[in-house]
């Protein structure tokens, strides 16, 4: 700092007479002022015109970029929401379909069972009817047969004993015999 002071004072001392230090360094009032004014002109031009223009452009672009990012984020959010909605709907639909299918399956099996049961019942009923009819027929046939046998045997007996055995007692006798033999055969 002392050097600075000496320098300044030396320069001042020289300035008073002859070729000064400032002259040697090329410093003079006219050149200095013109350079100063030149610089100030540039300063004002940049300050008042060019820098604001560029800064405005930069700010506008930044605002635009920010807006774009916000829009993109919003779009992303919307997309996520829509996707979750769609998933939910699909899930619901799936569940409903499952339910419907299950219900349908259950119904179908119920119906099938019912039909089966009915069919079996009817088949049984038909079978029983048939058996009953066959038995009836068989009974009737047997009765006819036994009557025939009784008649035949009475005829045969009357022929054998040559006399009519149409008395009621005899007839009963023969019938009892036939029934007994019938029962014995059945057993």
């Amino acid at each position: 700092m002392n050097i600075t002071l000496t320098l300044a004072s030396a320069a001042l001392a020289h300035a008073e007479g002859g070729k000064s230090g400032l002259d040697a360094l090329g410093i003079n009032a006219a050149a200095f002022l013109s350079q100063l004014v030149t610089f100030l002109v540039v300063f004002v031009l940049l300050w008042k015109y060019f820098l604001p223009v560029i800064q405005r452009t930069l700010e506008k672009r930044q605002a635009l970029i920010r807006e774009g990012i916000e829009n993109a984020e919003k779009a992303k959010r919307d997309l996520a929401e829509a996707t979750s909605n769609a998933e939910r709907i699909i899930l619901d639909a799936k569940r409903q379909a499952q339910d419907t299918i299950e219900r349908a399956t259950k119904n179908a099996s119920q119906v099938a069972q019912q039909i089966e049961v009915e069919a079996r019942e009817r088949a049984e009923k038909i079978g029983q009817q048939q058996i009953a009819r066959i038995q009836q027929e068989a009974n009737r046939a047997r009765m006819e047969l036994s009557r025939d046998v009784v008649n035949l045997s009475i005829d045969a007996a009357s022929k054998v004993i040559s006399r009519s055995v149409d008395s009621n007692d005899n007839r009963r006798l023969v019938e009892e015999f036939v029934t007994a033999s019938d029962q014995a055969r059945n057993n």
Binding site: L25, G26, I27, F32, Q35, L36, F39, L40
Partner: peptide, 12 residues
């Protein structure tokens, strides 16, 4: 390379 300019800028 002119001290007038650098000095005036330093002054500013």
């Amino acid at each position: 390379t002119d001290l007038n300019l650098t000095l005036s800028m330093a002054l500013v």
